[in-house]
């Protein structure tokens, strides 16, 4: 799998902005099949930076109900990437 297929996009919420500021951690939506090593490589290559640690979470898609019709949002994988101290990604600044 190519590295630019792995990262699906940034996840910007109140929580992730806080984590970024306090712990230098960035949060991405990533491909469900990617593992931590692949994510680490992908981030390092794409954003030209050094990654200290990657933690991943499988996020279950929400069940959405409208009347009788019950649907389910897709499951996805969240990756919290901790950068080496002093490293940063310009793309992420304030996205």
């Amino acid at each position: 799998m190519r590295e630019y297929d792995i990262i699906r996009g940034p996840l910007v919420t109140e929580k992730t902005t806080l984590q970024k500021e306090i712990n230098n951690q960035l949060t991405f939506k990533v491909d469900k099949t990617a593992n931590r090593v692949e994510i680490k490589e992908a981030v390092e290559k794409n954003f030209n930076t050094k990654v200290k640690q990657v933690r991943t979470i499988q996020v279950k898609g929400k069940v959405k109900q409208r009347g009788k019709i019950i649907g389910k949002k897709k499951d996805w994988k969240k990756a919290i990437v901790t950068l080496m101290p002093g490293q940063r990604i310009d793309f992420f600044e304030g996205v």
Binding site: L11, V12, T13, E14, T16, T17, E93, G94, V95
Partner: peptide, 15 residues
């Protein structure tokens, strides 16, 4: 999206 009303950091707003 991802933020409650009134809790959006300045940086995000600026962007």
């Amino acid at each position: 999206k991802g933020f409650r009303k009134g809790k959006i950091p300045r940086k995000v707003l600026e962007n």
